[in-house]
Design a binder for these strands. Sequence first.
RNA 1: GUGGCCAUAGUGUAACGGUUAACACAGCAGGUUGUGGUCCUGCUAAUACGGGUUCGAUUCCCGUUGGCCACCCCA
Length: 483
Amino acid sequence: MAPSKKSPKVKAKGKSGTKTAVKKVAKKQKVAAVTAGRSTVNKKAAPAAPTAAVASVPRIKGMPQSLRGMKDTLPLEQKFWRRVKSVAEALAQAYGFECIDTPILEMTSLFVRSAGTQTDVIEKEMFSFIDRGGDNVTLRPEGTAPVVRAYVNHGMVNLPQPVKLYYIGPMFRYERPQQGRYRQHHQFGVEVFGDDNPILDAEVALLAYLFYKELGISSIVRINSLGCNECRPTYREELINYFRPKRSQLCDDCKRRLSKNPLRLLDCKEEGCAALKDEAPQLVDSLDDSCKEHLMRVLEYLDDLQVPYVLDPHLVRGFDYYTRTVFELIPEDGDNKTASLGGGGRYDNLVEQLGGRPTPACGFGIGLERAILQMKAQEIDPPDDSIPDVFVAQLGDSARRKAFALFEELRDAGLRIAGNFTKNSLKAQLEIANRLGAKYTVILGQQEVIDETILIRDMESGMQEIVDYKKAVSDLKKKIVKS
RNA sequence: GUGGCCAUAGUGUAACGGUUAACACAGCAGGUUGUGGUCCUGCUAAUACGGGUUCGAUUCCCGUUGGCCACCCCA
């Protein structure tokens, strides 16, 4: 800290602004020191870095900020994340899915080839850059393509099919942040490879539904079928023929979509376009027999499983790799406009498209931030397992040492422990124990060290008992089990 | 990518074109010996960054960065 700040000189000089001037100087010195420190570290850590690149790094002035749309998850938030992740993992594992982690960074072409060049995510939302080797790489914007790549790379086609995989991890999209939308967000996703049985579509949708149900959130599945390579082109034609004469009534985006990606017209929320699409030919009507049959079977299974769903003939999803089943999860009370809680579908061509053998597959992705947002909106409070059973308090140096050892004994016995060995006053330690919500505090002072005893304080009643130090661990264990 | 609102201690708020930027909560230290979930006292801590207007800017203007919201899109 700059000592000059408190100097009486400041006052003596009179006239306004003196203090701020001093402050500014102090700040500048601090900043200079920090930047100097940084650059030395940089040079040491990355000697291979071209000096030009280091020199071009802009100086950070003032406080460093996190990047736009990127969030720190602080300790207070963690109970939500623990809950959401544990529900996801337990559910996926119960249904026979195995965990897969893929790199966050992939070749850009992977996403371009899978999701389609005409999609917004690929067109304008990717974190892409050229790495030092000259490769065009991208921070993954979605989870399916990397898992498909892994399936192909590792010859999982040779495993007993279907292969069922799940993942939890960060995704990146360069978008304007807003409620429930971040540039780095996290998804729980599952993928099933190697079988086109409609029961798998239903299972995948069920899992998405159950994930929210387990969290205490009611949701509804919106579902549709996009058909296959056989029947979709026919429908595409019909749709273009329907909209072309009405082109002038469409919004600018839709005019563009008409030639490039006509299916997305169905998805438009502009009033003018929305009115037109009511009369538009429906995808379901032009599905071929096998696709129609497939959809019907999926719906039947959902009925059996009592998963609430609505058939939404206008549902089209943001990635071009989908075939047949597509679905989205919305909150029970949500409308067309509410951000979806997750979505997925079938992608029977993608494995082949990425160089594998023709392999049917389906899956979903769920945004964990959105799940947590829903929990908060509905005041669902996850259990906080960071509340300690026992707080270890100490007084005096010899007691401190003994308490330190006791802390480990208690931890080893499976109790949740807290302590603060840097505080000297008992009062301060009890305050902390209280704030943490500890059920018991053990107190070890000079006297207890001499007597080889320890004090156990029940934090709720305030009752204290002196017990033999040797019995402390077993005694506490009993008390905790009882309560 | 488009549009609107916004930026003061860790958090939530207050104030003013001018001398000392206020309050609450949190944090830290105390209220004579070793006791929290009351109270009292003291302390720490802020005008996001850069430029402009002005004798003087935290206040007005511009830019940057970031936040919130809507659209687009998505999870």
